[in-house]
Computed example of a mutant assay.
Amino acid sequence: MAFLPALIAARDPGCAAWLDAALASPPLPGTPAFMRVFAAAGRRLRDAPPPGGDEVPALMALGIATPALWSGPRLLRAALLAAAVEAAGGEAPAGLTSAFRTSDTEERATILQALMLLPDPARFTALAADACRSSVQPVFEAIAGDNGFPAAHLAEPVFNQMVLKAVFTGMPLARIVGLAERTTPALRRMAGDFRSERRAAGRVVPADLDLLLDAPSLDGIPTP
């Protein structure tokens, strides 16, 4: 993906040269060589400005929901990821899963946020579903929040559980990209059951449930 290296070059020509050298023979995801260069990328471009101007709609067109939140290191790591995944071909899902499991929290967040930029992103639904079960909040929020991948590729049961987990953990539902389009009768019933359980136990009902339950019902089924 040429656009990401161009963003790097616009911020730091020296870093662009480093990236070119790293991509001359892209290390495959999950290999020690990849993990070394992926870690090193996090120490570069730390003072670079986030995407702005024409860069924002261009990144949004590629599937990045909130480009203004992307740091320089995240842009650099995404460029490395895209090249490594392309080079890996059919081995990419296994390799990326290995990289994810051996990464630190910030690296994992970058992998999840960059899924939409990878060749044939639907191949990585198993990795995304696993991230939805993470007990590490920044990792969970990296897949659930400000990320177009779940709405585009996750199956309904996985997506619905992700939404309910966001409520449980306090992540604002407004951060879930495509929530309105993916809200189904099943999701509304699950949210209604959760609200009823909280009320019956005398516990506070998260205000974010209003996004799912206080809008006019699309299925004719009243919510509890």
Rank of each mutant, 00 (worst) to 15 (best):
T66D: 14
A84W: 14
P222F: 11
M171L: 11
V205S: 05
G63R: 00
V163F: 12
L75T: 00
A39T: 08
D146T: 03
A94M: 10
K165D: 13
A88F: 11
P121L: 04
A17M: 06
A10L: 01
C15M: 09
R175P: 08
G145S: 01
E107V: 08
R44Y: 15
A166G: 09
Q161Y: 15
R175W: 12
G14P: 04
P67T: 00
T125P: 00
A92C: 08
V163Y: 15
A68D: 13
P216G: 11
A131G: 11
P157L: 06
D219T: 09
G220P: 02
G72M: 01
A17W: 13
V56E: 15
P29K: 00
L75M: 02
M171W: 11
F194Q: 07
A99R: 01
L209I: 06
A174M: 07
R74G: 12
A201C: 08
A21L: 04
R182S: 05
L212M: 13
A17Y: 15
A79I: 08
V177R: 08
M162W: 10
A92P: 01
G95Y: 10
A10M: 02
P50K: 02
A151R: 02
R133S: 12
T110V: 05
L81W: 15
L59Q: 07
M190V: 03
V136A: 14
A201F: 10
L59P: 05
T125Q: 04
P13R: 15
A84Y: 13
P216D: 15
L80P: 09
D120A: 05
Q161H: 14
G202T: 06
D146A: 01
D208I: 08
M1P: 09
A201Y: 12
W18Q: 13
E197D: 13
P73D: 13
L115T: 02
Q113I: 01
A129M: 09
A129K: 06
C132E: 15
S71C: 04
P26L: 10
G202Y: 14
A10R: 05
P206K: 04
I111W: 15
S71E: 15
L23C: 04
A9V: 03
M171H: 03
L76W: 14
T125R: 13
L76F: 14
G95E: 08
S98R: 03
T102P: 01
L28P: 01
A201N: 10
I143L: 07
D120H: 15
P185M: 02
G178Q: 00
P93V: 04
L118C: 05
L4C: 07
T97L: 09
S25W: 14
P67I: 01
A17T: 12
D104V: 10
G53T: 07
A99L: 13
M162N: 09
A186L: 06
T31G: 01
F168K: 09
F140H: 11
A58Y: 03
S217D: 15
